[in-house]
């Protein structure tokens, strides 16, 4: 099965962020394919590498980055939602004259068309939200 994943909630704030990560891990472990993970609404906050959760807690962003490296996952952060919330890659930071960028390794910033494409290409689109 080829899955598309939509993550609509931020890390630590909402279980949906953990559930999306755990579902993705479980699907990969069962041999399924993840076409793309798309981060929208506050879900874009899963893509900041500036998060520093307590050491005895899980690091959701780090786990996504590790998973992406291991499985060549396509982790896409919505550009419009990201700009509102201050999630920037190097190019976006330059383009808007910001003094830093914070996108975590393995994530990329792109448009909503990537979400629709995932809906078209995947066998199942799974939404993790409130």
């Amino acid at each position: 099965m080829k899955f598309g994943i939509l993550v609509n909630e931020g890390p630590y704030q909402h279980q949906a962020a953990d559930s999306a990560l755990q579902f993705t891990k479980a699907a990969l472990a069962k041999g399924h394919e993840i076409f793309r993970v798309f981060f929208y609404h506050d879900g874009v906050n899963n893509g900041t590498r500036f998060g520093v959760p307590p050491q005895d807690d899980r690091n959701i962003t780090q786990q996504w980055s590790d998973l992406a490296a291991e499985h060549q996952l396509d982790l896409v952060v919505c550009i419009a939602a990201a700009q509102r919330r201050g999630i920037l890659d190097e190019n976006e930071a330059k383009r808007h004259g910001k003094d830093g960028n914070n996108l975590a390794p393995g994530f990329r910033i792109s448009g909503l068309g990537q979400l629709i494409e995932a809906g078209i290409q995947a066998d199942r689109m799974i939404v993790f939200g409130d």
Binding site: N8, H41, A80, R84, G111, L112, I116, E117, I120
Partner: peptide, 19 residues
């Protein structure tokens, strides 16, 4: 909350895909 506005943004973009 921003859900309604950002949902509408998805719909407007999606329209270009002729689904």
């Amino acid at each position: 909350t921003i859900y309604a506005l950002e949902s509408l943004e998805v719909v407007l973009i999606a329209a270009a895909f002729e689904q």
